[in-house]
Amino acid sequence: MNLEELRKLREKGQREMMQRSDNAKYRIVVGMGTSGIAAGAREVLTTFIEEINSRKIKDVVVMQTGEKGYSSKEPVVEVFVHEEKEPVVYGNINPEKAKRIVTEHIVGGVIVEDYQVVFGD
């Protein structure tokens, strides 16, 4: 390993992340830290994958990340929409709610406000 190789790895990583958001209209990111998993994030992640597959939706990727710190809102799910920088943040998600997010937000294009985390100013 040298700095030059490391630079290439960095560019590769950056490219991959770019492509991911270029190719996918929606990116669903599930927080998979201990709090999230304890609150059911694994089931939520599986539900998203199953729903996306069974409905044969093409331009969506489902990913995992660590924990942000919103413990009281776990499982936390973020939906990144292709053109927009900031994600929609959903809190206290379970498999049922995940299905509704797929139907209404991913397929229908309408944010499910009922589950959205309202932030302080």
């Binding site: 960095r10 590769k12 990583g13 992340m17 990340t65 660590g66 924990e67 942000k68 710190g69």
Partner: peptide, 18 residues
């Protein structure tokens, strides 16, 4: 934390890791 995929080293590389 809660931004990158912690199991994918490329996401750390992409953020100037190492």
């Amino acid at each position: 934390s809660g931004v990158i995929d912690p199991e994918n080293i490329f996401e750390y590389f992409a953020e100037h890791g190492y």
